[in-house]
Design a protein around this nucleic acid. Structure first.
Lengths: 344, 344
DNA sequence: GATGTGAACGTAAGCGCTTTCGTAAGCGCT
DNA sequence: AGCGCTTACGAAAGCGCTTACGTTCACATC
């Protein structure tokens, strides 16, 4: 007895046979390439649909030398800042019929390189790298070199929020934003400030701090008197920073967190300790993550258009590469809410 | 003059030539397959590293018939619930050396099918589908059929939070959780309840509501007297629901939101209207997203281990398929915080 | 010393597509 | 009828890998 051995999946050949055409015609019909009469093309498509044929992407990419997919590298997808960027990339990518590979690095430079390599291996058409780069020149150079090779092989790269990689970039106005938020606090009359920040080894943070320093200098406040507390760039880090500030610098009247996540942690500690915000201490954030406006008190912060930044970055990456790296600034906006007020 | 035409990217052949071995030996060396002496294998690897060779994943997948990548389907990656699940999948996936393709559907059933097909086309080794399914049997059947074909072709599937697809599943205790949160509120003495929920056409929501109904019945509260307000399953939907509840049912003393996002929106509206929580109205959430504990008032909710659920789902999907679909329940935990108290 | 054995390596046949090139047929023109 | 031109299609050559199978050679066995 003969056992009819069934293939696991349909091939283009099966569709072609069923439609009574050659494999070449079938391929052209399905991809919409010219050189096939409309009637034949339509018949092939109908047959394929009925059979439930799904083309093998690997075979297609190998033969065509291109792939309809893009890569996205983020620090941590659970972080709302990156989640929103990812949402933007996924939205535009979906519209363009691209699949998106997401990698997260946990802010580990080695892992970042590894992830980039993996994306290169996948011959993704474009790579979007979100999140701060490293101030360390050696790390920058390593990333730069890998990306350079990828681009020479025809890959496209865009980054969000770092400007040292020689590729197209979407740049949030970190320095201007840092300046704006500090100016707001200074204008309210605060003079004894603390800053809660993540590692200064990240460019984003360095930029934001630079803005704060500018504003202080302009207002005649010696930046050296500003207490800069470095902790994790997370809610937990914010809590630790807040406790440290309260313990060591009880006279501070305003705490500037360098992202909303830290600010949320800070608010939480102040609330637990019964400290009035903004009555005794004003608190500010940075990013304007979705929840910032719904906190109590709602958070004064700098709005960055994360979703749009994700879209723009992918857009840049999909464009014909320019001779010189393009820069696209993403605007910032000071959003004044209830967490800031004049010093008590 | 002869122009040396340079290849865009290195091939395995180039490495083999440089190392003075055949392409087969090179392949075996790099993949760690047996049949190569250690010295030769090491030399090949060293040469490959020095040349910066990165294997073409498409060629590899095509030849080997497998791919080291998995797909993740979520409703919306910007939603913290899904972002945390994604984080779990990415974490475990990264550990296993898998790349992860993320698709989001915007809660659109057609788009979900489309995304699943795209993943099938990519011959991903496994697919994890997160998020509620549709109660509608026709939609269920369509998804089920596509997945069935994929599994017959050797693909693995696991789902999170839906139990109708005949595949391995990680099931959050939605009904038990709904019951627990309602019991908590009822035990505090509340009798005039409102529920703010997303579309009841989603299984997750139907399950949670069923739990609430159970608790009400057990406590002798007629579920028909509970005001169930259906809106978007988001912060914005929570605000709309809250306004409607305040306008139409001002005597309500507790609002049960069917996820934290809605609860945050509700808290925000109550705060704006100067309504004391929990003094006049108690509010509960569901999920325990990261920010829930740092809100003011902090949110009483049901904790679901999202990150772990993501990991477990991928784990299930990577295992040898069992004869019968496996079920793995993810525990729930009532987290009582400051947003609930006895009715005023 | 003939023979079997296994390890180490090379040859070549695909994997399922895309795309170049060749060919046949249909068309209008002289 | 003969010519060139266009259009529609098929044959076949890859894309860059993996892997079944063949070959070689060192070594142990009788």
């Amino acid at each position: 007895m003969q056992v009819s051995r069934q293939r696991a999946t349909l091939r283009l050949q099966d569709v072609a046979t069923a439609a009574g055409v050659s494999i070449a015609t079938a391929s052209r019909s399905l991809s919409g390439a010219p050189g096939v009469s409309d009637t034949v093309a339509e018949r092939v498509r109908e047959v394929a649909r009925q059979m439930g044929y799904v083309a093998n992407v690997h075979a297609r990419s190998l033969a065509a030398g291109t792939s309809r997919s893009v890569g996205l590298v983020v620090h941590e997808i659970g972080d709302p800042y990156f989640a929103e960027i990812a949402s933007g990339v996924l939205r535009l990518g979906g519209e363009e019929g691209l699949t998106v590979q997401i990698c997260h690095t946990g802010r580990d430079p080695d892992k970042e390189l590894e992830q980039i390599r993996s994306l290169v291996a996948h011959r993704v058409g474009a790579i979007v790298i979100a999140g701060s780069g490293f101030v360390d020149p050696a790390l920058q150079a390593a990333a730069r070199q890998d990306l350079q090779a990828y681009r020479e092989a025809g890959g496209r790269v865009a980054v969000i929020g770092r400007h040292h990689l020689g590729v197209d970039a979407v740049l949030p106005e970190n320095t201007k934003g840092g300046r704006a938020i500090a100016e707001h606090v200074l204008a309210l009359g605060h003079r004894r400030l603390a800053v809660a920040t993540g590692s200064r080894g990240l460019t984003t943070i360095a930029d934001r701090l630079a803005g704060v320093e500018e504003a202080c200098t302009a207002a005649g406040v010696d930046f050296a008197t500003v207490q800069v507390i470095e902790a994790e760039f997370t809610r937990a880090g914010g809590k630790i920073a807040a406790e440290q500030i309260l313990a060591e610098h009880p006279d501070v009247t305003a705490i500037l967190a360098m992202n909303d996540d830290m600010a949320i942690g800070i608010l939480s500690v102040l609330r637990l300790q019964g400290i009035d915000v903004p009555g005794r201490i004003s608190v500010t954030g940075f990013d304007d993550v979705a929840v910032a406006g719904d906190l109590a008190p709602s958070l004064t912060t700098i709005r960055l258009p994360m979703l749009t930044m994700g879209e723009h970055a992918l857009e840049l990456a999909l464009k014909e590469p320019a001779a010189r790296p393009r820069r696209r600034t993403a605007g910032h906006e000071l959003v004044v809410r209830d967490s800031t007020g004049p010093p008590g």
